[in-house]
Measured scan of single mutants.
Amino acid sequence: FACQWLNAHFEVNPDCSVSRAEMYSEYLSTCSKLARGGILTSTGFYKCLRTVFPNHTVKRVEDSSSNGQAHIHVVGVKRR
């Protein structure tokens, strides 16, 4: 389900990036709304992400508004 969900909601775009945590959060929200069992852990979800978008990269984005915490963004992917 996770791989199908990724294909339905995201697409390849080399000029874009999406927060990896936001992607997983949206996946969890969809699973909750659909009352799905067998929800992937974040590790399983990221493995699926690598399968669906094998050419993506990740980058660390520093967020000055959150006490220097960094966010991981998936580069080469955008929301549909």
Rank of each mutant, 00 (worst) to 15 (best):
F1A: 06
F1M: 15
F1R: 15
F1K: 15
F1N: 04
A2C: 03
C3G: 01
C3F: 11
C3Y: 07
C3D: 04
Q4D: 08
Q4E: 15
W5E: 01
N7E: 10
N7D: 07
N7S: 12
A8I: 06
A8G: 07
A8D: 06
H9P: 00
H9S: 14
H9I: 04
H9L: 03
F10W: 09
F10E: 01
E11M: 07
V12D: 15
V12Q: 15
V12T: 15
V12R: 11
N13Q: 06
P14W: 07
P14N: 04
D15F: 02
D15H: 04
C16P: 01
C16D: 02
C16K: 10
C16S: 14
S17D: 03
S17Q: 05
S17N: 02
V18T: 08
V18P: 00
V18M: 05
S19V: 11
R20M: 05
A21Y: 04
A21E: 13
A21R: 09
E22L: 09
E22I: 11
E22C: 06
E22K: 04
E22P: 04
E22A: 12
Y24A: 03
Y24Q: 02
Y24G: 00
Y24R: 03
Y24D: 01
E26L: 09
E26H: 03
E26N: 03
E26R: 03
E26M: 07
E26T: 05
E26C: 05
Y27I: 00
Y27V: 00
Y27E: 00
Y27L: 00
L28F: 15
L28I: 09
L28E: 14
S29R: 09
S29V: 07
S29D: 13
T30K: 15
T30V: 07
T30E: 12
T30R: 12
T30I: 01
C31P: 07
C31L: 10
C31Q: 03
S32R: 12
S32W: 04
K33F: 02
K33R: 10
K33H: 10
K33E: 13
K33Y: 03
K33G: 07
L34V: 12
L34P: 11
L34I: 15
L34A: 11
L34Y: 12
A35H: 11
A35K: 12
R36N: 07
R36S: 13
R36C: 08
G37A: 10
G37R: 10
G38D: 09
G38I: 08
G38Y: 12
G38L: 10
I39D: 07
I39S: 13
I39G: 13
I39Y: 13
L40C: 08
L40P: 06
L40F: 04
L40T: 11
T41H: 02
T41Y: 07
T41R: 07
T41E: 06
T41W: 04
S42I: 15
G44H: 13
G44E: 12
G44I: 04
G44Y: 07
G44K: 12
G44L: 09
F45R: 00
F45M: 02
F45S: 00
F45K: 00
Y46W: 06
Y46Q: 12
Y46G: 12
K47I: 04
K47N: 13
C48H: 04
C48P: 01
L49I: 13
L49F: 11
L49M: 15
L49H: 01
L49R: 00
L49Q: 01
R50H: 15
T51R: 12
V52Y: 01
V52W: 02
V52M: 05
F53T: 00
F53Y: 15
F53H: 00
P54R: 08
P54W: 04
P54H: 03
N55E: 13
N55T: 13
N55P: 03
H56Y: 03
H56L: 11
H56T: 12
H56R: 02
H56P: 01
H56W: 02
T57Y: 12
T57V: 02
T57M: 04
T57R: 05
T57A: 11
V58G: 14
V58M: 12
K59S: 13
K59D: 15
K59R: 15
R60H: 03
R60W: 13
R60I: 05
V61E: 09
V61W: 09
E62I: 15
E62L: 09
D63C: 10
D63T: 06
S64V: 05
S65R: 12
S65Y: 04
S65P: 02
S65Q: 14
S65C: 02
S66P: 10
S66D: 15
N67I: 03
N67H: 05
N67W: 11
N67P: 04
N67G: 12
N67E: 02
Q69L: 11
Q69H: 02
Q69G: 14
Q69M: 10
A70E: 13
A70M: 13
A70K: 12
A70D: 05
H71N: 15
H71I: 06
I72G: 07
I72M: 11
I72K: 05
I72F: 14
I72R: 13
V74R: 01
V74W: 11
V74L: 10
V74Q: 01
V74E: 01
V74K: 01
V75I: 13
G76K: 01
